[in-house]
Amino acid sequence: MRETATNLPATGEDSTSPSDQPVRGAEEEIAPVAASTPRSEQPGVLFVCVKNGGKSQMAAGLMRLELATAGREGAVLVSSAGTRPGSKVNALSAEVLAEIGADISAETPRQLTPEAMREAGHVVIIGAEAQVQPLEGVQIERWELEEPSERGIEGRERMELVRDEIHLRVRELRERLLG
């Protein structure tokens, strides 16, 4: 169970460092290189996994539940996405969340986009499989969860353990985001 947090610099072909920009005359107006999605003053978090059908949806549902329970509903912009989204939310994930008052049954997996990352400002990658390109100004952390199936635990019991571990981490993140 390892957690890392970084504020990663931009990399790759989309770099906008001064050395990558054309030289302009002093009288020329400089336009932004690329339009960015404006970030609200409200804190945001985007939970990411590969399919956006299980763990990231669970984390988003649990964050919404935690905010509502604390009387802070809407205090954090909460979203989720996948690097290769599936077609639907995992039924067992939705079922074990419903047991504790979080409803994700109507959610739909979404594709991860740079705009969604910028809008949230804080990205939590759940698991080791999802790979996310860093963006300047976006804080990224990864939650590597214990996998119960590696101990022979499957089905409902596995999903409850995953839910409970994510829930603990979501509570801690809520405190960090809201102070």
Rank of each mutant, 00 (worst) to 15 (best):
V76A: 03
G152P: 00
M117E: 03
L92V: 13
E136G: 05
W143N: 00
Q133V: 07
P134T: 09
A120I: 10
A70C: 09
H122Q: 07
V76Q: 07
P148K: 06
V89Q: 12
Q139L: 13
R156M: 12
A130T: 03
R118M: 08
E73H: 09
V162W: 09
E154C: 03
E160S: 00
V162C: 01
A116D: 06
G86M: 02
A128T: 06
L67A: 09
L77P: 01
I126Q: 03
E119A: 10
W143S: 06
Q133D: 15
A106Y: 05
A130S: 13
R156C: 05
A91V: 11
R118C: 05
T69A: 15
A68D: 04
S93A: 15
E66D: 15
V124G: 02
A98V: 02
M117I: 08
E95M: 14
P134F: 11
G82H: 01
A70F: 10
A91E: 15
L161E: 00
E146M: 08
P114F: 01
Q139E: 15
L97V: 11
P134C: 13
G74E: 00
I104C: 11
G121T: 04
A130Y: 13
E115M: 06
R158Q: 01
T108Y: 03
S105F: 08
V138I: 04
Q139A: 15
E154M: 04
P134G: 13
E154I: 12
V162S: 01
E95K: 14
I140F: 15
L97H: 07
V76F: 08
L135Y: 02
Q133E: 14
R118I: 12
A128M: 08
S149R: 13
T83G: 00
G137V: 06
G127Y: 01
A75C: 10
A94M: 12
E99S: 14
I153V: 15
E95Y: 05
R156Q: 03
G152Y: 09
A102Q: 03
E146A: 04
S93Q: 10
E66G: 08
A98G: 14
S79A: 08
A98R: 15
L77A: 11
E115P: 11
S149P: 07
V89M: 09
V138P: 04
T69G: 10
